[in-house]
Design a protein around this nucleic acid. Sequence first.
DNA 1: ACAAAAGTGTTGAGGATACACCCATGC
DNA 2: GCATGGGTGTATCCTCAACACTTTTGT
Lengths: 229, 229
Amino acid sequence: MLNNYNTEDKVLLAVDCIIFGFDQEDLKILLIKRDFEPEKGKWSLIGGFLKMTETLDDAANRILNHLTGFDKIYMEQLYNFSKIDRDPVERTLSVAYFALINIEDHDEKLIEQYSAKWFSIEEAPSLIFDHNQMVQKAILRLRRRAISKPIGFELLPEKFTMRQLQKLYESILDEKLDKRNFINKVNGLDILVKLEEKDMTSSRKGSYLYQFDKEKYDRNVEDGITFKI
Amino acid sequence: MLNNYNTEDKVLLAVDCIIFGFDQEDLKILLIKRDFEPEKGKWSLIGGFLKMTETLDDAANRILNHLTGFDKIYMEQLYNFSKIDRDPVERTLSVAYFALINIEDHDEKLIEQYSAKWFSIEEAPSLIFDHNQMVQKAILRLRRRAISKPIGFELLPEKFTMRQLQKLYESILDEKLDKRNFINKVNGLDILVKLEEKDMTSSRKGSYLYQFDKEKYDRNVEDGITFKI
DNA sequence: ACAAAAGTGTTGAGGATACACCCATGC
DNA sequence: GCATGGGTGTATCCTCAACACTTTTGT
């Protein structure tokens, strides 16, 4: 039995995270202004290096937790970027992750401390290395996910209105949706509970609040009903 | 400007390939019997280590070429597997790739030389490390691809019958399809050319041969027509 | 009374599915 | 002449898209 693969090359493995948020208007991503070389002063995704003692998911969690202050974020491995000279300092591969967080209840202080800032997708600055490419790929993945899994709720507060949910889907899919068709579809999925409460901030009439009901969702999925918006 | 990221850990990166083929009956995968430690004598995916001087795609191509003898294989990056102890010898991450090859025109000798063998998905032996998991993931990816991109043709000879194409899709999707509906759908896509020739091996009557027409396909895609079986 | 957003159903078209019989040929 | 797989069309269902008016309430 071997003890090691001595003759093989070892490489540095970075983990970079595309963090999506939603501010009731636009889909946004969280970027940081680098305060270290290379490319100091430019905008980039948050990232870090994989440690010998952790899995990739662990590393992505650690990095996300460090910046946003919380755990149990929806997170998915996205793709590897491995161009030889993608990092000018040294040969480095990067594993991109994408994450969804509720923009409202995350820690402002941490974000300030790291010079991080939310940018709407259209207004995001150009990023270092191949990070723009990563963001593009993440958006496409997010779209595919959004229409096949109920991940949208990860981006909303616990209680939300139908209008908010619709706006979120509109900004993810980058297209206008019909109000009635959207509501009919969502109601057809039977994964929300309508609350008695109304949100009065958005209109005179007020609009009912809803909650995502994970149990209902799981039951539906078990019964073979597929989520599809 | 930095010259290196001295303090960070480096890791071994393996590339493992799930190679799919189709023998007119079943969907198959190509496996090798390992003639080296660890797990010598057991079945595994083919793989190798990433070299400092190549991208992941390069590495996957090199490994595939080495075993099958040809280049320009349809190939896709699948996922990273990074459990700490997945390889008992040493901490190793693996990037899984899946590939499609035409089972008929590949090099028998190379395959013998490497003790490689085609297994139908159901009859495949248990594999080393986390390779079974990789295969499962590859099958799911293949299914999603097959209904949204015309990758099926990569697995068939240049000229094929409708029955062959249908059988291929049936084995990828693991369900029976209706003959007439399938033909109508495929013809509706307008991406095949019907040849004058018939294949006489499968029946008395003989069945017409078709060819995938990449130009037609590209034109249709440009025009916004989506492939969907 | 009016402005501003919320809420609510129906219809029509197109795509998907289900389904059965004749054809050509080698033996 | 018969057995074998090849080829073909239609009726129905259901999903998806298009579409406009009434309600509530704060000012």
